[in-house]
């Protein structure tokens, strides 16, 4: 089953008679099929989908040529979605949120917010070293001991330390579709989704 490319609009509450649910509003599609990869020709089955509108000033010549050849108006984002079976799709066909229904479960892929070089408390949930008093003045958020002494006499590989955090590709599975609004290309899913508002998301059933 093919997916859809979307953009995170933000989070809000979704009221039901049994209370309210935290939900994410996603603007998804319409996504034209820009190219079709086939097992025969490319070794795998997939659809290349487009999303958004690319202004002509952002269109370089190779890309312009590509869109012209495919007969699709230039899009901002191009992404491939693998298919398990080759289906009956055509280049230029447009997919939209109507492929999802209320109650469906979807996987949403996004890129998490980049947190830069983060310490061990933020990055790995360490508790830090003790409190502020008892003569301590500067180790509240430190990692503490690195390991044992004579054995092994070194720091274990994989020891969790400070470093770059965030800005990774994350997929959240089984988010329930609460509502589909085809006129506005809007999809409401329960729960949260990776990335900032305005971030690009990939949705799959």
């Amino acid at each position: 089953m093919a997916g859809l490319i979307g953009q995170k609009v933000g989070m809000t509450s979704f009221f039901t008679p049994n209370g309210d649910v935290a939900c994410t509003v996603i603007q998804a599609g319409p996504c034209p099929i820009v190219a079709i990869r086939s097992k025969q020709k490319d070794g795998y089955a997939a659809l290349q989908l487009g999303f958004g509108v690319r202004k002509s000033k952002h269109l370089n010549k190779p890309l312009a040529g590509y869109f012209q050849k495919q007969g699709v108006s230039p899009v901002r984002i191009l992404r491939e979605f693998r298919l398990s079976e080759e289906g009956s799709y055509e280049v230029g066909q447009v997919l939209d949120v109507r492929m999802f229904e209320e109650g469906d479960f979807v996987s949403v892929t996004g890129w998490t917010k980049g947190r830069g070089f983060a310490g061990v408390v933020k990055r790995h949930g360490f508790a830090g070293v003790g409190g502020r008093t008892h003569g301590q003045h500067n180790r509240e958020r430190h990692p503490g001991s690195m390991g044992s002494n004579t054995f092994p006499g070194r720091v274990w590989k994989g020891k969790r330390l400070a470093g770059r955090y965030g800005n990774e590709r994350v997929t959240i599975e089984n988010l329930q579709v609460l509502k589909v609004i085809p006129e506005k290309n809007i999809l409401i899913v329960s729960g949260s989704v990776p990335g900032p508002i305005g971030g690009i998301l990939l949705l799959q059933k």
């Binding site: 609009v9 933000g10 809000t12 509450s13 979704f14 009221f15 939900c23 509003v25 603007q27 609460l178 509502k179 609004i181 506005k184 809007i186 409401i188 508002i197």
Partner: peptide
């Protein structure tokens, strides 16, 4: 909060506003 989000929020929760 963006206008779109505000609008959608009212749309999906219309029966409860």
């Amino acid at each position: 909060m963006s206008h779109l989000l505000r609008e959608i929020e009212h749309l999906i929760n219309a029966p409860y506003v």
